[in-house]
Design a protein around this nucleic acid. Sequence first.
DNA 1: TTGTATTAGGCAATCGATTTCTTGAATACA
DNA 2: TGTATTCAAGAAATCGATTGCCTAATACAA
Lengths: 337, 337
Amino acid sequence: MAVTMQDIARDLNVSVVTVSKVLRNQGRISAVTRKRVLRRAKDLHYRMNWVARSLVTRRTYTIGLLLPDFTHPFFAEIARAVAQTVRPHGYHVIISYSEEDPKLEISEADSLLARQVDGLIIASSQPVRRLTLFKQIQARKVPYVLIDRPIAGLQAPFVGVDNRAIGRLATEHLIARGCVHIGHLRGPDIGIAAQRLQGYREALANHGLRMPTSYVVDGGHGDQTGYEGMRRLLRARPIPDGVSCYNDPVAIGAIKAILDLNLKVPHDICVVGAGNVQYSDLLAVPLTTVDQGTCQIGARAAELLMERIGLKRPTRSTRPKKILILPKLIERQSTRR
Amino acid sequence: MAVTMQDIARDLNVSVVTVSKVLRNQGRISAVTRKRVLRRAKDLHYRMNWVARSLVTRRTYTIGLLLPDFTHPFFAEIARAVAQTVRPHGYHVIISYSEEDPKLEISEADSLLARQVDGLIIASSQPVRRLTLFKQIQARKVPYVLIDRPIAGLQAPFVGVDNRAIGRLATEHLIARGCVHIGHLRGPDIGIAAQRLQGYREALANHGLRMPTSYVVDGGHGDQTGYEGMRRLLRARPIPDGVSCYNDPVAIGAIKAILDLNLKVPHDICVVGAGNVQYSDLLAVPLTTVDQGTCQIGARAAELLMERIGLKRPTRSTRPKKILILPKLIERQSTRR
DNA sequence: TTGTATTAGGCAATCGATTTCTTGAATACA
DNA sequence: TGTATTCAAGAAATCGATTGCCTAATACAA
């Protein structure tokens, strides 16, 4: 059986209350008693039972992190940043993943709440306009922060990257590198992909450029689909001399397609990805990409959550913060000419 | 305030005990009462308070996963496999990472134990012969399983990959592909790297081959060091026509070095990595590698832990299991000729 | 001397469940 | 009819802490 405060109290002929107070540095305790308690606690290798404490304080010092998939480097890095940020506050992170399944996401969220987590960070895969999950969480008055994927029509704190800026940055970089026929391999995802596409268009517009509609092609979200998308894009005339891609895997697929046609990257065609995934610099042609500040997303989200957990009274007054991380262009081989 | 069993009991004029029994499907309860309780619970959106339950049952249905770094795809995948495996048992996973810092690892383990986790899975970064951490855990009688890195002199369940087999498989594959001058870029890590090196030597010996000592070169553990290692290896005479590498990043660096000298992979030199990291097939030359069954490691470790948590009496009788996952060769471009 | 503060520490209730033991009523059996 | 058995439900103790209020002792001021 583990050592409890009772054991210490009994040994020292004091009450558990006294022990508890000493161990929390709280209340008025004489130096002598304090020393005795501390001493005995150390001797017995006493460790607090956090479950018991949590029951009465209603704080578990645990947050839930609900992601679609933490194998993906993007989410893995977020997880690390979150864990790192909350650690100094004495918090731990319970992970959970939904595999992009809205039902599973709800049941996992439920189960995290049952464990009395003090807060939640969610990259939700709920379909648009399905707010039940969030309403439930709100009803339980558990603070939460959304990340990566904003939910339309929801008043909730959010941390994500500025996807329009990503599209803009990538495209402007191509323009700066002298590309004049700039295509875009767009992604499948409605929200994010659409915004990156919009950024692409904005950049063009800002520079008074117009591209044929055949320059925007669906590139899916993986290297396979990126490859196929690029094949299609390469049939456009004039052949593009620059491509901005929905994400890195798509860009990698695109580069393959280009090389397979005996064209050169970046000599004939420049390629920009987005995401700055690990190993981006180990590829056939190291990929210029837009870094989406993954660490920052995790860290800011965690900070925001800590803040909201901190204030007991959920201040209805202030509107929930939305934080947009500014992406940053990372130039590598694939556009350097 | 959240709904408790009390609320249900009061509403129905029954005792909490009855409610508790119904909700756990335990004890003798009449169909009528059961229905009433269930009904009311649903109406009030009752959710169990797991903290309270844990206090008395001494089960938190939570395990701790202590890794050096879960940003690394290897560990990320293990984390996923673990979470997936324990989910059906009603378990959740608290993650913690040590950043390869033994001190931090100890304090994190401590803090996980204070949270009353039911078990621990650890990829430890304790230096050799420092068993204090594990002795501590054992003293608390919390089941644990080591993964990836075995700890010498410790009687503890372990799940990892057979590293000798990795070296052997890689090298035998090169032999099968007709390579006759086979080098090895070894890693820095004493335990694992040494075993892979040994596997390399075994394979050669099994086929009656002998290589000059200059064929074994330190390749570090990243692509940068792998690049440099390969440069050195390329100065050996005769120039190797096959290289087995400590891990994938090293192999990727090696391929770069080879290509930079205007040699062709696999035509002039075959390269085999180890680890089968994500994106291995997106590289300049898709990399033949030895898959180390990452998922399996996580899954088996989790199963083992569930098993040990299951039996109340820690059976001292059976010696702790050591499970070695058999690696598997994945052939891609870099050796296909 | 009396009254008021201050200090050190403990009592009892509480958090929200589970567990063990009882109890009273209904039913079965002799 | 009397006794044994079964059944549904509850009382009380418990898990290991925290919290608010109380008390006794000492110090200080009037």
